[in-house]
């Protein structure tokens, strides 16, 4: 059943991205381009998603101690604003602003078969692996210091 929920959740996400046209890099860039011919659509996408998710979270999730089909909510409880969060978000924003594609749409537009979109997707996966390698190295370094 959990797998069916994962599939349905994915379908809703994909339909939402497409209907909202967040799969179109031009629309995303035009949202970010406040000094140009501004397209505020993305702000409404976020506002709408946040209203649904946020109200559901506080009314239906926070009132429960576990999800309907599993043992616990896997949600980050980390509250620390650390360097990796700040650096990561900055690097992400730079890449996103250059092209207008973030991970969800990157997956969606693979369906076009356009090689540039395939190239972007592969580069993105490589970027993730590099970041993981670096954070692992840092972690083992700090562990060594503790020992």
């Amino acid at each position: 059943m959990k797998l069916v929920i994962a599939l349905i959740s994915g379908v809703l996400f994909g339909v939402g991205l497409t209907i909202a046209q967040m799969v179109n890099p031009a629309k995303v860039l035009n949202f970010l381009d406040i000094a140009g011919h501004w397209d505020p659509s993305l702000a409404l996408v976020m506002a709408s998603a946040l209203t649904i998710f946020g109200s559901g979270y506080f009314l239906l999730v926070q009132t429960k101690d576990k999800p309907l089909l599993d043992k616990e909510f896997i949600v980050s409880k980390n509250k620390k604003i650390d360097n990796s969060l700040v650096v990561g978000a900055t690097v992400f924003g730079l890449g996103w602003g250059l092209i207008g594609i973030c991970p969800g749409p990157a997956l969606a537009i693979l369906l076009t078969g356009n090689m540039k979109f395939v190239g972007f997707f592969i580069a993105m996966l490589i970027g993730m692996q590099v970041a993981q390698k670096i954070s692992k190295t840092n972690r083992s370094k700090s562990n060594m210091r503790i020992q």
Binding site: I99, F120, M124, I126, A131
Partner: peptide
């Protein structure tokens, strides 16, 4: 394309 892809991947992983 490649630079932006690397940055988006790296940044999203590092920034969680």
């Amino acid at each position: 394309i490649i630079i932006a892809g690397l940055l988006v991947g790296f940044g999203s992983k590092m920034g969680n």
